[in-house]
Design a protein around this nucleic acid. Sequence first.
DNA 1: CGTTTGACTTGATATATGTCAAAATAGCGC
DNA 2: GCGCTATTTTGACATATATCAAGTCAAACG
Lengths: 243, 243
Amino acid sequence: MALNDINQTEITRLRVACSNCNLRELCLPVDLTPNEMTRLEELSNQKRSFATGDYLYRSGDRFKSLHAIRSGSFKTRVLHEDGREQVTGFLMAGEIIGLEAISTDAHTCEALAMEDSEVCELPYAKLAELSREIPSLQRHLYKIMSREIVRDQGIMLLLGSMRAEERLAAFLLNMSQRNAIHGMSATQLRLRMSRLEIGSYLGLKLETVSRAFSHFQDEGLIQVKARAVEILALPKLREMVGK
Amino acid sequence: MALNDINQTEITRLRVACSNCNLRELCLPVDLTPNEMTRLEELSNQKRSFATGDYLYRSGDRFKSLHAIRSGSFKTRVLHEDGREQVTGFLMAGEIIGLEAISTDAHTCEALAMEDSEVCELPYAKLAELSREIPSLQRHLYKIMSREIVRDQGIMLLLGSMRAEERLAAFLLNMSQRNAIHGMSATQLRLRMSRLEIGSYLGLKLETVSRAFSHFQDEGLIQVKARAVEILALPKLREMVGK
DNA sequence: CGTTTGACTTGATATATGTCAAAATAGCGC
DNA sequence: GCGCTATTTTGACATATATCAAGTCAAACG
């Protein structure tokens, strides 16, 4: 089960969202020998299901596995002393969750399902051990992690210098590209998160997010119907974030 | 030469700045056997010197080495089409520079000296090869990289939700801790960068940075004399960034 | 159906930051 | 020390976003 449930073509599709609204291919390298691929598949030993609001892990939990999201979606967040929620990420089907904990031995944030979801467990110790034997896997692991650094230098760092509508444009483009990479529409988005969560993620108030959505619609850039968003002018959105 | 010039106690001091204004120990693990340590020292094959404004690398340069900064300091930046400079990081003596390029085979930003500086080259291929033979070194490398992710979730991500003075407080604390970790004063800072560069890094205008400095001084939190900053109330600064 | 509930939108106003301009200060070569 | 220049500080005002407060809408439920 687990990774074995994911067929070869699906494996080549596993991705991680990254960098300045761009997506990059994930971790599971496609240049492995059949034997190596088999060993990688055997590595995953568990599949788990989650309902909306269920925790995949909590802050303080010992870190022992990464997880490949097979279906559904998760958000990661930090809860501040005063109860405020700070959303730190949205993870979609086909993406890898848990990377932020590798350095710490314990999770520093919590992850919970935004809808009914399934994940495959990837025990980190086994992954690291295997990567020692398979140099190309090791290279890939280094790359996934350092891509997160690039992301840092991309979206996150720029967040500080972007205005509200630029942030939302970046967010929508990111969602669009992650959608597309998983074989779904690049223009028809079904957002899984509330305006409040988007705001928390982007460092904006929910009203500001809502106004930005409305303004984009007035400008003919998107069509909004609650959480169903159709992108009408991808190029203009790209222009807004400078690419 | 190179790493051999750095004595044992200095090696244990090499660090990388990270995470939400906290510093973490770096990469060069101290739990190596003498033999392993020797091999690591032999790995570095070159020492280079730089004057103010010299480039350590430019965007597009092929990535082949990390660099340990022996003295001086560097900034990394991205230049936008329109000529605007976006500062993406400040790297101090004792820290490792170049990590952002590991995933790309080419540098995505440029690094230049903010003062006369010296670096030791750490050829990445050799480092990766060595880490395959020394598991504890591999663990360390993974950790350095993923720490950058945590940093993402720390300072960078929070940047979006922090106000100007909170950002500056976070910046000052970061500088203070990096100073302290290298055996220098935690309260007497000699900033190497201009208000413009700080602003670019924090996503603020230079005037806003200046006003924040002035306000902190009025409040008795710091003593400012151009780029010499004395921190008078560390705890209050920590409070401002929520820790 | 009508009611309830939560999410979303919209408006009025306050606050924070950016923008433009000028003055003060520090650094530096002579 | 003097004068030059770049940096920094400060002020007045414009703009963007937050805050507070209603109002709308849609799904869920009696």
